[in-house]
């Protein structure tokens, strides 16, 4: 019996994986979409289907996340709209690249290798930052702070200049460059690109951190919509996969964002970094399985990706449950012993 064109086992798998991805998205504000394309590639979906379906999933998840940020007023819609042209052009360029590679039979390999490098690089950055934070004892960034590099870029008045919602000015060239650059990555890898767009909006355009997060999510919404439409034109979106993933991720995102009130991000960031490194290794095993024609590597790859995601999800939920119990005990005046 099939539902949404998927077997019951696949539905359970995609809903569960969507849940884990949603927890990461809700908790870290990123980390969702760049696990979906590799998972679909490992499951044997062709690169354009994996990327197209992932883009549609990014769109749905970004709609949900943007609705949450809209409620607290942290979305600069004007800046998001100004990035739109760059995003569209970038996604089209990325998509052309994927289809060009598919035509010569190299799409899975190139996208897979790009993911190995990307996940590995982000994993190293996260793990290193987590270790550094442990050594330094932390350090908070104020929501209204603007980094020095952004101030310097803003000091170059290259016309046309536009006024942003917060009253500051930015060059249309910088805005289009950020939109276009992230668009290429989104269109090529099927990701929302939040892990690049958010820092780019913060460091290059100079939008305060809170608004950068909300605006980046709005950018992911546009990237996802444009990407889903663009890949949809070629008929390569598996709506059953997207729906099953969304059912899980919408719930996971709520639990993940609620967990931020209880869990200190610094406690779990290192696990997230390690998970990304394991995901990078998983995709590498997937590529080896194709290259050496050894299906056992596919199994290793799948277990690594799902296992590491499950591990970090359990860690977040565990820390959340412990914190809820501690807070309840404090409210009751009962002494609590740390474990």
């Amino acid at each position: 019996m099939e539902l949404l064109g998927l077997s019951p086992e696949l539905i359970v798998l995609f809903v569960s994986f969507g849940f884990m991805v949603g927890v990461f998205f809700g908790f870290f504000g990123m980390g969702g979409s760049f696990l979906v394309t590799p998972a679909l590639l490992i499951l044997g979906y062709p690169a354009p289907v994996a990327i197209g379906s992932s883009m549609a999933f990014v769109f749905g998840t970004a709609v949900i996340a943007t609705l949450k940020h809209h409620d607290v007023g942290s979305v600069d819609y004007k800046l998001g709209a100004l990035m739109f042209v760059g995003i569209v052009a970038g996604i089209e360029a990325g998509k052309l690249l994927v289809f060009g590679l598919e035509a010569i039979g190299r799409a899975e390999l190139v996208v897979g290798v790009a993911y190995v490098l990307l996940l590995g690089a982000i994993g190293i950055v996260f793990t290193r930052n987590a270790l550094k934070q442990d050594a330094d004892g932390g350090g908070e960034t104020q929501a209204d702070d603007i980094p020095e590099i952004a101030k310097k870029i803003k000091s170059y008045n290259i016309p046309p200049m536009v006024t942003l919602t917060d009253g500051s000015k930015a060059s249309m060239w910088t805005i289009s460059g950020v939109g276009g650059g992230v668009g290429v990555v989104s269109g090529f890898l099927g990701v929302g690109g939040g892990f690049i767009r958010m820092p780019a909006i913060y460091y290059l355009i100079g939008v305060p951190l809170a608004a950068a997060v909300g605006t980046s999510l709005f950018g992911a919404l546009m990237s996802g919509a444009v990407g889903a439409f663009s890949y949809g034109l070629s008929g390569v979106i598996d709506i059953g996969v997207v729906t099953a993933l969304l059912v899980g991720s919408a719930l996971g995102a709520r639990i993940g964002s609620a967990s931020t009130a209880y869990v200190d991000e610094a406690d779990v960031t290192i696990y997230f970094g390690i998970m990304l490194l394991m995901a990078s290794t998983a995709v590498a095993f997937g590529e080896l399985a194709n290259w050496l024609e050894m299906p056992i590597f596919d199994t290793v790859s799948f277990v690594l990706l799902i296992g590491s995601s499950l591990f970090v999800t359990v860690i977040i939920l565990y820390y959340g449950a412990v914190s809820v119990r501690e807070q309840a005990a404090l409210a009751d005046g009962t002494p609590q012993v740390d474990d």
Binding site: A56, F59, G60, T61, A228, G232, I239, L246
Partner: peptide, 13 residues
């Protein structure tokens, strides 16, 4: 397809 995903997302939210 885009509209369907949008409706699904809002419905789930």
């Amino acid at each position: 397809v885009v509209m369907l995903v949008l409706v699904e997302a809002i419905g789930l939210y």
